[in-house]
Computed example of a mutant assay.
Amino acid sequence: MNDAVSDDAVVAETTTITGAGGDRIEAYTARPLGSAPRGGVVVIHHMPGYDRSTKEMTRRFAAEGYNAVCPNLYSREAPGASPDDASATARALGGVPDERLVGDVAGAAAYLRGLPNANGRVGVIGHCSGGRQSFLAACSLDLQAAVDCYGAFVTDRVPEGFPLSVGPIGHLAKDLSCPLLGLFGAEDKYPSPEATAELAAMLTEHGKAHSFHTFEDAGHGFFAVDRPSYRPQAAVAGWELIDGFFRDNLATGS
């Protein structure tokens, strides 16, 4: 009998990690089987919540060879609630406070670095509100890579009527701890091409490594396969950039 582990064999499960303030919060984790050293990826879910598509993304990173974890940022407000109900509750409260987000991502990174096969390198990725939070985490924590997928309100203010109570964080660019990959749509309004150009200028001013890509004929949410906003060409190209970026920055010996 052959006991060898397949290269793409993974295990995925719901677990509990320690988040901000020592709170125990729900998280979804996926990791490759086998003992080879692995980098880690913290997946920050979008405002619609800790949902099926975000969990699928977490499993995708495991299949690519990383230990991955997605903390449920709404664990405190809506424990056990459906993604839609939890998101509605969070929106009514103005979203996740920045300070708490940083603490939850710090806990997720500590979880990844504590795994037996961890190589100590951790990256973070987020879409939409999670893109902004990915940038925030990378400016607040010791990380090795960060991906911002169309994260809005980094340099500009939240318009009146939006269900978010956060402010601009572009001034944190000077504190960026790792290379940043930014993926945006030319037809997006939040963030607009002007806003992403402003952030790129801030990063350049402070000598921070970054690579921004803006896709034509794509708007907000172009990665979302279950939405009308999905743009296959931009999404495929974006995933190729993400895979190469994490491979360069999270692999053992990189």
Results as ranks from 00 to 15, higher is better:
Ile25Arg: 08
Val43Arg: 01
Ile25His: 04
Val236Gln: 15
Lys174Ile: 01
Ala106Met: 04
Val236Ile: 14
Met1Cys: 06
Glu26Asp: 11
Thr29Gly: 05
Arg132Gln: 14
Val105Thr: 06
Leu73Asp: 08
Leu203Val: 02
Tyr150Cys: 11
Thr58Phe: 13
Cys139Asp: 00
Phe184His: 04
Cys149His: 03
Gly49Tyr: 08
Ile125Asn: 10
Asp156Ala: 13
Tyr111Gly: 10
Lys55Pro: 07
Val11Asp: 07
Asp8Gly: 02
Gly253Ala: 14
Phe162Lys: 02
Gly207Ala: 00
Phe246Leu: 12
Phe222Asp: 01
Ala20Pro: 09
Ala78Arg: 02
Tyr190Arg: 01
Asn72Met: 15
Arg38Asn: 09
Val124Met: 12
Leu143Phe: 03
Val5Cys: 13
Thr196Leu: 03
Met202Tyr: 05
Gly161Arg: 02
Thr58Arg: 01
Leu143Tyr: 00
Gly207Thr: 00
Glu205Leu: 00
Cys139Glu: 00
His220Leu: 13
Arg31Glu: 15
Asp98Pro: 13
Leu203Gln: 00
Leu250Thr: 09
Ala200Asn: 06
Leu93Glu: 11
Asp7Trp: 08
Gly238Gln: 05
Gly21Leu: 12
Leu93Arg: 15
Val69Thr: 04
Glu187Lys: 14
Val225Lys: 05
Phe153Met: 11
Thr196Ala: 04
Thr155Trp: 01
Val166Gln: 06
Val124Phe: 02
Glu198Phe: 01
Thr89Pro: 01
Cys178Asp: 02
His210Asn: 02
Ala186Cys: 03
Ser6Ile: 06
His46Ile: 03
Leu115Gly: 15
Cys178Ser: 12
Phe212Ser: 11
Ala209Ile: 04
Tyr111Ile: 09
Pro191Leu: 13
Tyr230Ile: 01
Val42Pro: 05
Asn72Leu: 13
Ala118Leu: 06
Leu101Val: 08
Tyr111Gln: 03
Ala62His: 12
Ala200Leu: 04
Ser229Lys: 13
Thr29Ile: 09
